[in-house]
Amino acid sequence: MRKLPIAVSVAAVALTAGCFSSSGADAKAGSLAKGNSLDGVTLTVGSKEFTEQLVLCQVTALALRSAGATVNEKCGLQGSNTTRAALTSGSIDMYWEYTGTAWINFLKETEPIGDPAKQYKEVAEQDLAKNKVKWLDAAPANNTYALAVKTTTMQQLGVKSLSDYAKLAKSDASKASTCVASEFAGRSDGWPGLQKAYGFTLPKASVATLAEGAIYDAIGKGKPCNFGEVATTDGRIKALGLTPVPDDKSFFPVYNPALTVRASVYEKNPAIAKIANPIAAALTDSVLQDLNGEVDIKGKQASEVAETWLQSKGFIGK
Rank of each mutant, 00 (worst) to 15 (best):
R262E: 09
D93F: 15
K313H: 13
E229P: 08
V55R: 01
N256E: 05
A282K: 03
Y165G: 05
D172I: 12
L54G: 01
Q301C: 06
A129L: 11
Y216L: 05
K108S: 14
W309Q: 04
E125F: 09
L202P: 04
L87T: 07
V180I: 15
A214V: 09
L283P: 00
A17N: 02
S47G: 02
F227Q: 03
L291W: 08
D164M: 11
V305I: 03
T178Y: 13
L202M: 06
T260R: 07
A239R: 02
P224D: 08
V230W: 04
T83G: 00
T232M: 15
Q53A: 12
G30T: 01
S22F: 06
A273S: 12
L38G: 00
P112S: 02
K48Y: 10
K132I: 05
A124T: 06
T144E: 05
D285Q: 06
P192R: 15
A273E: 08
V133E: 06
T153L: 10
R187N: 13
L43W: 08
L240G: 03
S312W: 05
L210H: 08
S163M: 04
V149G: 10
T284V: 09
K3V: 14
L56W: 10
L64N: 01
Y255G: 01
G40K: 05
L43V: 05
S37G: 07
A271E: 13
T153P: 05
E229Q: 14
A146V: 10
P116M: 02
S9I: 11
Q301Y: 14
S66W: 00
T284M: 07
V245Q: 04
A33K: 01
G317V: 01
A166N: 02
A282C: 09
S161T: 11
K150T: 08
A61P: 02
N72W: 10
G317A: 12
I316N: 00
A271P: 04
G30K: 00
L54E: 02
L62H: 00
N226A: 13
G186M: 11
L4Q: 14
D93K: 10
V245N: 02
D285E: 09
E267P: 05
V8F: 09
